[in-house]
């Protein structure tokens, strides 16, 4: 399951709608030790295309180094489809190389569409996962098991 803050979901939508009809792409980085999505990094689509996206390789190097220095990982890798549904294409699957990432897809094919979907893509196998949008990562657990014992 992907748990993600509402402001980050909104930021992905804003980026996707801004770049429409080209595909938009980016990363949400989070701490390696507790990988929740925290830091939105909109990336340049080097292809500037309505049917293809590719991170600019120099920008990617800079961003990946930053994440490395901050002990962050790419928790979410997102892109938009601008004429088709928010489901990974064959090309998406062939490039998917982060087994621990949540691959998020949004579709901007219709202005009122709010399809925001998340997938794991491991060894070419797509597994869709539920998305829980939360206001904050704190205080959202209600189960007794999540309350630590006091000393």
């Amino acid at each position: 399951m992907l748990r993600i803050r509402r402001d980050l979901v909104d930021a992905i939508w804003a980026h996707a709608r801004r770049d429409h009809p080209d595909e938009a792409c980016g990363v949400i980085a989070g701490p390696e030790r507790a990988p929740v999505p925290e830091r939105h990094i909109p990336m340049e689509n080097a292809e500037r295309s309505p049917t293809f996206y590719r991170f600019d390789s120099m920008e990617q190097l800079k961003v990946w180094r930053e994440m490395d220095q901050n002990d962050e990982v790419p928790v979410v890798i997102y892109h938009s489809h601008t004429a088709t549904e928010a489901y990974p294409s064959r090309t998406d699957v062939s490039y998917a190389a982060e087994p621990d990432a949540h691959y998020v897809l949004v579709s901007t094919r219709e202005p009122e569409n709010t399809e925001f979907r998340s997938y794991r893509i491991v060894d070419g196998v797509i597994t869709e996962e539920p998305v829980e949008v939360v206001e904050s990562y704190m205080f959202t657990h209600t189960g007794a098991d999540d309350v630590p014992d006091r000393d």
Partner: peptide, 12 residues
Amino acid sequence: VTILPAVAGGMR
């Protein structure tokens, strides 16, 4: 030397 996976995809 740094190796990174290219991050790319598309609708097809």
